[in-house]
């Protein structure tokens, strides 16, 4: 196949990944799993970013560069987030997101 894939393919895949990640972030009780789903969402977005960078001339070819930076930041975020989860776990002995509801009315 020498015909180029339409850009919409990558975009739809990225959108689906984002949706699945959102669903998981809303659904799961375990905080670490919620984290993982957030990572999925980020990846979906990065995929879209790179697809644009590759397909659109007006992007100026910076899509992949931005993607690198995003990956780096996401990794940092994982570190900090897990540190928080650990701290919460230490004081409450649970990673169940449901039970962190002090802001209830």
């Amino acid at each position: 196949m020498n015909q180029a894939l339409p850009i919409e393919g990558y975009l739809v895949v990225g959108a689906l990944m984002f949706a699945i990640g959102a669903w998981g972030a809303l659904i799961r009780r375990n905080a670490v799993v919620v984290f993982m789903c957030i990572e999925l969402m980020i990846n979906g977005v990065v995929l879209t970013l790179v697809a644009f960078g590759d397909y659109l001339p007006q992007a100026g070819g910076v899509g992949a560069s931005y993607a690198v930076l995003v990956i780096a930041i996401a990794a940092a975020e994982v570190a900090v987030g897990l540190a928080i989860v650990l701290a919460v776990f230490r004081s409450r002995r649970t990673v169940n997101v449901d039970e962190a509801n002090l802001m209830k009315w």
């Binding site: 809303l26 919620v34 997101v97 449901d98 962190a100 509801n101 002090l102």
Partner: peptide, 8 residues
């Protein structure tokens, strides 16, 4: 009840 305190 909307303010359930749950982040999700």
């Amino acid at each position: 009840p909307v303010q359930s305190g749950g982040v999700q």
